[in-house]
C-alpha cells in the first residue's frame, strides 16, 4: 500500500481511531446522543476555526478572531433590545468590515498578518471595553429566546447548533471548491507570485479572505452571546489557540494552499475528542493542559502531511 496516497486521509483516520479508542474504554462515549452533544458543544470553536481556515489557507493568520468574538458578544448584548433580529446582521457586518481592515493593513501597508490582526484584535478589545463599560452584560432572556432560541435548542437528539455549523460548512465548502474566490485563494496560498502574474487581483482576494474570517468570528461571537445569554470583553478568551490548533490538526498547514474547510471540520472534532477523552480517562483538571499539549504533538505528528514540505520551518 502506498503510504503517500494515504497521507491526505490521515486526519479523519486519526479521528476515527481516537473515537474508537475512547469508545473501547467507555462504550457510553459512542452513544449517538453523547457524540452529538459533544459535537454541538464545539460549534462556536468550529465556526471560529472555519473563519481562520480562510486566513491560513492564503498563508496568513488571523489573531483577531478571539477579540472579535468577544466584542461581538458585547455588541449583541447591547443592541439586541433596540435592533431585534437585525442585530445579527450588524454583528456579521462589523466582523466583515474589521476583517477587511486587517486585510487592508496586510496587503496595502505590508504589515505581516500576524501583527495586523493582532492590532485589529486590540482595537476590538478597546471597543468591547468601551461599549460594555468593562462589565459583563446580560441579554433579556425572553427576547433572546424569541429571536435566537432556534440557534441553541434541540431537534430530537440533535443540537440545533449543529445545523448552523453544517450550513456554514456547506457554504464555505461551496466558496472554496466552486467559486472564483475559492480558486483565487488557493492560487494565492500555493503561489502568490504566479497568481499575481496571471492578472489575479491578489490584494482584493486576500482582503476578502480576512473579511470572511472576521465575519465568521463574529458569527461565533453571536452564538456565544446567545448561548451564555450575555456578553463581556473577555468571555471567549482561551478560544484562539484551540481554533488555530483545530485548523492545523485538520491538515491545513500555515504555509497555505493545501487543506481547506472540510479539514478544519475534522480538526475541530479531533480537538473535541481529545478534550472529551480526558474526562473519560479520568485525567485530573491540573493535568489536563499538559496532557492536551502532549496529545497534540502526537496528533500533529500523525496527521500532518509533510511529504510536500521541502524544509520545515
Amino acid at each position: 500500500m502506498d503510504i503517500q496516497r494515504l497521507k491526505p486521509h490521515f486526519p479523519w483516520i486519526t479521528l476515527l481511531v481516537l473515537v474508537i479508542f475512547v469508545g473501547l474504554n467507555d462504550p457510553n462515549f459512542l452513544k449517538p446522543a453523547n457524540l452529538l452533544s459533544l459535537a454541538g458543544d464545539i460549534v462556536p470553536l468550529f465556526i471560529m476555526a472555519l473563519g481562520l481556515t480562510f486566513a491560513i489557507y492564503i498563508g496568513g493568520i488571523d489573531l483577531s478572531a478571539q477579540s472579535m468574538a468577544n466584542m461581538i458578544t458585547v455588541v449583541a448584548s447591547v443592541y439586541l433590545a433596540s435592533l431585534g433580529i437585525w442585530v445579527a446582521l450588524l454583528c456579521v457586518a462589523i466582523g466583515f468590515a474589521l476583517g477587511m481592515l486587517s486585510g487592508f493593513i496586510t496587503t496595502r501597508l505590508f504589515v505581516p498578518s500576524f501583527i495586523s490582526t493582532l492590532a485589529v484584535g486590540g482595537l476590538c478589545f478597546s471597543m468591547a471595553q468601551w461599549l460594555s463599560g468593562n462589565r459583563a452584560l446580560n441579554m433579556d432572556a425572553a427576547e433572546r429566546d424569541a429571536l435566537f432560541g432556534w440557534m441553541i435548542g434541540r431537534t430530537g437528539i440533535i443540537p440545533n447548533e449543529l445545523f448552523l455549523a453544517v450550513a456554514l460548512l456547506a457554504i464555505c465548502l461551496f466558496i472554496e471548491r466552486r467559486t472564483t474566490l475559492g480558486r483565487a485563494l488557493k492560487a494565492v496560498g500555493a503561489g502568490e507570485l504566479a497568481a499575481a502574474a496571471s492578472g489575479v487581483n491578489v490584494a482584493r482576494f486576500k482582503m476578502l479572505a480576512f473579511a470572511i474570517s472576521g465575519a465568521l468570528a463574529a458569527v461565533a461571537g453571536l452564538l456565544f452571546a446567545v448561548k451564555l445569554s450575555g456578553g463581556a470583553p473577555t468571555i471567549a478568551n482561551g478560544f484562539l489557540l484551540p481554533a488555530i490548533v483545530a485548523v492545523l490538526v485538520g491538515g491545513t498547514p500555515l504555509t497555505g494552499g493545501v487543506g481547506g474547510v472540510l479539514n478544519t471540520a475534522i480538526g475541530t472534532l479531533i480537538v473535541a475528542v481529545i478534550r472529551a477523552s480526558m474526562l473519560y480517562f479520568g485525567v485530573e483538571a491540573t493535568q489536563q493542559q499538559m496532557v492536551f499539549g502532549l496529545v497534540l504533538i502526537a496528533a500533529i505528528a500523525l496527521t500532518m502531511d509533510r511529504s510536500k514540505l521541502r524544509t520545515v520551518k
Binding site: K186, A187, A190, G191, A195, V200, V258, K308
Partner: peptide
C-alpha cells in the same frame, strides 16, 4: 505556474 494546482485550475487562472 502555481504548483499544487492542477492543469485546468492553472489554465483558467487568468
Amino acid at each position: 505556474i502555481v504548483a499544487g494546482m492542477n492543469v485546468y485550475e492553472n489554465m483558467t487562472l487568468s
